[in-house]
């Protein structure tokens, strides 16, 4: 479903060039919960941000259901982005909008009529268990609740893929588990392919069926989670 081929990203700055991704190849199948694990600065965020072109790759291709997103721009790119939900470590909710309005926002962008959007928001609120918080503002929510809003918002347009950049790194262990549970149930119930960027092995162990290890801009290992855990334990 997502094929990343020879993806290379160089950041240009006044201090010179920095190679953040070096010929990365990944093959993510439909229905996977695919983990990408690595230390801070390894290039994980750069990788996931290239998938929806938040970051423009320097070279390489990213095929999403056979369509190369790196060749897209304008309305075509925006349409494709609507099929790729994304959640972030810092949630990035609209702080002046309440929970309901936050979840409705991507539906407005996609041109839904208001009534249909309202009904869809109700479904999503139920999905993430926040029916009672519809009228609350993000500033009044806990981290876990904020991430649930972000998940509902990312799922609003029924994306094929959900990109998660350190989605649980700002959360305590118990909340982390509940968010991971939610992601897993979304994967099973809605068939959404999930890509999880993390620096924590326990996140990978908890929900990823496949995982790639990234180290200084390169993928150094990838495969089934179970095999990889065995590999590390063998070392």
């Amino acid at each position: 479903m997502i094929k990343i081929q020879n993806l290379t990203k160089i950041y240009h700055s006044d201090h010179g060039d920095f190679l953040a991704l070096d010929h990365v190849n990944l093959d993510i199948k439909k229905g996977d919960i695919y983990g990408v694990i690595g230390l801070s600065g390894a290039g994980k965020s750069t990788l996931v941000r290239c998938i929806n072109l938040l970051e423009k790759p320097t070279a390489g291709n990213i095929l999403i259901d056979g369509e190369d997103i790196t060749l897209m721009n304008g309305p075509e790119l925006r349409k494709t982005r609507q099929s790729l939900g994304m959640i972030f470590q810092d949630f990035n909710l609209l702080m002046q909008k309440n929970v309901f309005q936050n979840i409705k926002f991507p539906l407005e962008i996609a041109g839904f009529d208001s009534k249909a959007a309202d009904a869809r928001v109700q479904e999503l609120l139920k999905l993430v268990g926040l029916e009672d918080k519809a009228n609350s503002y993000p500033a009044k929510l806990s981290g876990g609740q904020k991430q649930r809003v972000a998940i509902a918002r990312a799922l609003a347009n029924q994306p094929k893929v959900l990109l998660c950049d350190e989605a649980t790194s700002a959360l305590d262990p118990v909340t982390t588990l509940s968010i991971l549970e939610l992601l897993k149930s979304i994967n099973i119930r809605l068939g959404v392919t999930i890509i999880i960027i993390t620096h924590e092995m326990k996140v990978v162990e908890a929900i990823c069926n496949r995982v790639a290890v990234i180290e200084s801009a390169k993928i150094v290992k990838d495969g089934l989670t179970a095999d990889l855990i065995n590999h590390f334990e063998g070392e």
Partner: peptide, 25 residues
């Protein structure tokens, strides 16, 4: 800046980012 990135990731056009995100926020 993250809020603007979230808007881009949702498929907002630049005009939508200005009128629906930057100004109201």
């Amino acid at each position: 800046k993250g809020i603007i990135e979230a808007a881009i990731s949702m498929g907002c056009s630049n005009m939508q980012i200005i009128t629906k995100v930057m100004i109201p926020e």
